[in-house]
Amino acid sequence: MLPDFASVIPESKEDALAYLSSLKSAKIFAGGTDLLVKMRRGESYSHIVDITGIHDLKVISDHDEMINIGALSTHYEISVNQIISEKALSLAQACGWVGSPAIRNMGTIGGNLVNASPAADSLAPLLIHDADVVLESKDGTRRMRLEDFILAPYKTDIQPHEILTFITIKGLPGYREGYKRVTKRAAWAISRLSIAWAIQEKGGFYKDVKLAIGSCTPMPFRPRKVEDSLKDRAKDEKTIQVAVGEIIDEIIKVSGMRPSFVYKIPVVKALLEDILKG
């Protein structure tokens, strides 16, 4: 059995925010795929605010190049959404790999970010799309970069009375884009290593390169210095070798030499070479 709690099931964001501001030790319940597991292991809360009835937070829409993703969108919904597939393919692909079909039907992207597992598949794609999160409470709304929102593995900047309501990302139509991951088995697995990329090229030159590497450093990261240095560079073997070498150096600088790097570093190197060659 789960620990005792009382739940409320608000149908509007305003009601949910009002409950959160008045209740002590209230926990937001979205898909439940992480929260109920933690509760079975002994975490307890006096009150649960089940926000899954709030339809406004399930909508995915776009305006010019900005895409607004309701935090209650499930991994499945994102994986088959047309806007996401056209303008943020790596995110659609990554969400299509999360857990199992049932987990993808249950788990939400907002919950995934608030849980902040460093191995979350959605993180690397969101980083290359310069994701912002929108946090709302009864006192107001604030917006911050996803990179600033996640403070450390399993730790975010969300405050007790806030709901993560939306994620906004910049669409990259026309980019060569994708997501690759390395796992211990083909399906129903946690990523040991992941890379999201979006690359724009013209006439044998890189115009814009965005890369994010997951599960090599404490949090997925973008090698921005290397991305900048690739701008207007000829797409040739030497450029690729230099860029990949610099990214690997950066990974080792951030993480130190980890035992797993005997395996991971050659794999990241090969994946990055393939991705940059396209």
Binding site: S7, L36, Y76, N105, M106
Partner: peptide, 9 residues
Amino acid sequence: EPHYSCLTL
């Protein structure tokens, strides 16, 4: 759609 009833309230 498949759901796990052990993690569904």
